[in-house]
Computed example of a mutant assay.
Amino acid sequence: MSVAPPATAPDTEARLLEIVFPDHTNHIGTLFGGTALAWMDKAAFIAASRYARRSVVTARSEQVDFRLPIRQGQLVETIARVVAVGRTSMQVDVALVAEDLLSGERALCTRGRFVMIALDADGAPAPVPPLADG
């Protein structure tokens, strides 16, 4: 008998974990902005792909706010959620939450929104299902 593993997140969400190592940081020991953006885009890609069950590409990143620095040695949870859909596009809110591994203290450090486009097998924009209420 085969039992499917339980779902760990709704189809509108993706969560990724990273540790900030020295090669991820600038000269003052904080996460490079470009690395933060790459992690955010990756999470947006996964959330949108899960939702649409299609290949997706990034169309735009909007209003990325770097609120607090993320330091070397911290755990970073990247949380992406599909929050709105158009005919072929999905808006994905992404947050970076830093956690001190020893104390467990967590803080929202960075937020942004990404627009992803679903593609068909030929690489043309493809329709996505409407977002369920709730």
Rank of each mutant, 00 (worst) to 15 (best):
D41E: 15
A118M: 10
T8F: 06
V128E: 14
A52K: 11
A95K: 10
D11C: 04
T110L: 10
R87E: 14
A4H: 10
R71F: 09
P125M: 07
R53M: 10
R15P: 00
D11I: 05
G34E: 08
H27D: 07
Q72Y: 03
L131N: 04
E99R: 13
D65G: 00
P10L: 09
F21A: 08
L75H: 03
R106S: 05
A7R: 15
P6S: 12
H24M: 04
L37H: 07
V56F: 14
A9K: 12
L119T: 14
G29S: 02
V92D: 06
D41W: 12
A121F: 12
P22E: 05
F32M: 06
P127K: 15
L31H: 02
V82K: 03
S2T: 13
T25C: 13
P22M: 03
I46D: 00
G73P: 11
T12D: 03
D65W: 04
R15T: 07
V92A: 06
M90G: 11
R113G: 06
G134M: 10
T110V: 15
V83N: 01
T12I: 07
L16Q: 04
L75R: 09
V56L: 12
A43D: 01
P130G: 12
H24T: 00
R53A: 13
M116K: 15
A107T: 14
A98V: 10
T110M: 07
R113V: 09
T35E: 12
Q74F: 02
A121S: 15
V76D: 00
V83L: 01
V57F: 10
R54D: 13
G104Q: 08
L108N: 08
A107P: 06
F32L: 04
L96W: 05
T58G: 08
E18G: 00
L102N: 15
G29N: 04
L37P: 09
S103K: 09
V115A: 09
A59F: 08
R15W: 03
T78A: 02
P5F: 06
P5I: 05
E105G: 07
A124K: 13
A48I: 11
A132Q: 05
A47N: 03
A14F: 07
V64D: 13
V92C: 05
M90K: 11
T88G: 11
R87M: 11
Q91L: 08
T78E: 00
D122I: 00
G29W: 03
K42L: 12
L31C: 02
T8C: 08
A84N: 09
V97G: 01
A80G: 06
G123V: 10
M116N: 14
H24A: 09
D23L: 10
L119W: 11
A132M: 03
A84R: 13
S49K: 15
A107S: 15
S49T: 15
G73Q: 08
A7K: 15
I70N: 03
T110C: 12
P6M: 11
I70L: 02
E77K: 06
A98Q: 10
V128T: 11
I28S: 02
P10S: 13
R50P: 02
R50M: 02
Q63K: 09
A107M: 12
G104Y: 12
G134E: 09
T88R: 13
N26Y: 04
L119E: 14
F45L: 08
L119A: 14
T78M: 02
I28M: 05
A38R: 15
A47H: 06
A98H: 09
A80N: 05
A84T: 04
A98N: 08
S89W: 00
T25M: 03
W39M: 07
A132P: 01
T35K: 11
